[in-house]
Design a protein around this nucleic acid. Structure first.
Lengths: 142, 142
DNA sequence: GTTCTTGCAAAAGCTTTGCAGGAAG
DNA sequence: CTTCCTGCAAAGCTTTTGCAAGAAC
């Protein structure tokens, strides 16, 4: 189990939350994969080991973990949201192939600072993915 | 009727598309409001004058107009997409009050250029809104 | 008249909720 | 044993689709 996941379980324990099958399994899964998973992806993986875990439990678990700051999700327009262990940074999703690019938060800092100064708006660049096209699918790349 | 809307109707006519009640009404509505409307908002306005226009017609009309480059939509995470006459620029939506800030595209150009150079990814900053908090709801403003 | 568009109804995709039984501590 | 969590079923919200009737040109 990766350090992220161990830590998340520790946090649960420290705060007196119950460590259930769904919670442990989902945290382990999110800790093991570098990918960005939808609730359905997560349910599929969980079912492989624990077929009794219901979809609604997956959603409720993700919601709880997010409330406690252990998990985050982001949207990319059409389709389901993506979930991952907390580690706020922006994402860019290719409109053609769905590939997700993790962008370090620092790349957005000048923009965030500028928008704050000029418009009085504090951007949370991690909550919604930006849509675009990756190298292979860029309009200029053919 | 605003110039944008007149122009959009002209384009339809010039391309030999049919000018139907739904199309004309929706274009006029989008031309008249500075707001960003959901399909449901649009249907409500259209119904006021033309109660027979069905929700599915609203969606199909918006889809067609978008295909022809006259309308655009963007997403802001949870909830319905927003539609407006074409005029690509990024949006920032306040997570607290839902207020939408229009951001000139030029503000994003340095970021877009940098991400293209550094990551080979062409961002389309207009398709997904960025989430954040406006002046009154910023974490630091209380 | 011919072709494109619409109204209706039904369903699809993602997510939330009420409730009663069950597990964690 | 008490409180919190879960399974199930049902529904909610946004959006899409098939089809036959209807409107635009």
């Amino acid at each position: 189990m990766r350090a992220d996941a161990v830590n998340a379980i520790e946090v649960l324990r420290a705060e007196g939350r119950r460590i259930t099958t769904a919670r442990r399994t989902i945290i382990e899964l999110l800790g093991e994969t570098p990918d960005h998973l939808t609730a359905e992806d997560i349910a599929a993986h969980v079912h492989a080991a624990h077929p009794e875990v219901h979809m609604s439990t997956v959603y409720r678990t993700l919601e709880s973990l997010e409330t406690w700051g252990l998990v985050e999700h982001f949207h990319h327009g059409h389709g389901a949201a993506f979930f991952h262990l907390s580690a706020s940074h922006p994402h860019a999703v290719c409109a053609e192939c769905g590939r997700v690019l993790d962008v370090p938060a620092r790349e957005f800092m000048p923009l965030v600072d500028h928008v704050r100064d000029a418009y009085g708006f504090e951007l949370d660049v991690a909550h919604n993915a930006l849509i675009g096209r990756c190298l292979e699918h860029a309009p200029s790349a053919h």
